[in-house]
Amino acid sequence: MPNLGLIELGNAVYREQIKGIVLDTSIFDQYRYGFEFGLLAKLQQFQRSTVAHVVIDVVRHELQRHLVNEAVEHKAHVKNALKPLGDSWGISNQTREIAIAGLFGVSAPK
């Protein structure tokens, strides 16, 4: 199947020329895992249609790995930002740890 623009893709779906959509990791990376907003959120329009969403196991596992790695990285950024902030405001390490636990919980990202 040739690459289609958004309008052409919409027309092909409407004419039922497309039976499935396959998503690759690069699409998720490109749109920064924006499942609630943006282009990835627009996939919801196919929820009640005959168009199938296909996510290959390898892609699913790769997506999970990317999301977990990003979650760990973002948590580290927050912790690193709280240290000087806490120092300048006189907030104890224990209070910062409570705040971090409140934000992230105690379990690792899944």
Rank of each mutant, 00 (worst) to 15 (best):
R15V: 09
V58Y: 11
I7K: 14
V58S: 15
K83N: 04
Q17Y: 07
K110H: 07
S88I: 07
H53T: 12
Q64G: 04
E73T: 11
L23H: 08
L39S: 14
E70P: 01
P2T: 06
G90A: 08
R96Y: 00
H53E: 10
Y31D: 08
E62F: 03
Q47G: 02
I91L: 04
R96S: 02
N3T: 10
L6S: 14
E16T: 09
K83A: 07
R48D: 14
N69L: 10
S92K: 09
E36R: 12
E36G: 04
G38S: 10
E36V: 09
N11Y: 06
Q44D: 11
F46Q: 03
N11R: 12
Y31L: 08
H61R: 13
L82I: 02
Y33D: 13
W89P: 01
S92L: 07
V54S: 05
G38F: 09
E73Y: 14
D24G: 15
L63C: 09
N3W: 12
E8Y: 04
L85T: 11
P2A: 04
D57R: 09
P109T: 03
I7M: 09
R48E: 11
A108L: 06
H61Y: 07
I7H: 12
Y31T: 10
S107R: 08
K110Y: 06
K75N: 02
A12R: 11
R15D: 13
T50F: 10
I91V: 15
I21C: 10
G20I: 06
Q17F: 05
S26R: 10
L63D: 01
S49R: 07
Q64N: 08
G105M: 05
F104R: 00
H77I: 00
H74Q: 12
T25F: 04
K83T: 13
L39E: 10
E70V: 01
I56V: 13
I21W: 06
N80E: 15
K83Y: 06
I18N: 06
V72R: 09
A81R: 14
D57Q: 13
V72Q: 04
E36L: 14
E8T: 03
G5P: 00
S88V: 12
A101W: 01
V78Y: 00
K42D: 15
I21Q: 08
N11T: 07
V72T: 04
D87A: 11
K75S: 03
L82R: 00
A108W: 01
K75A: 06
V22S: 09
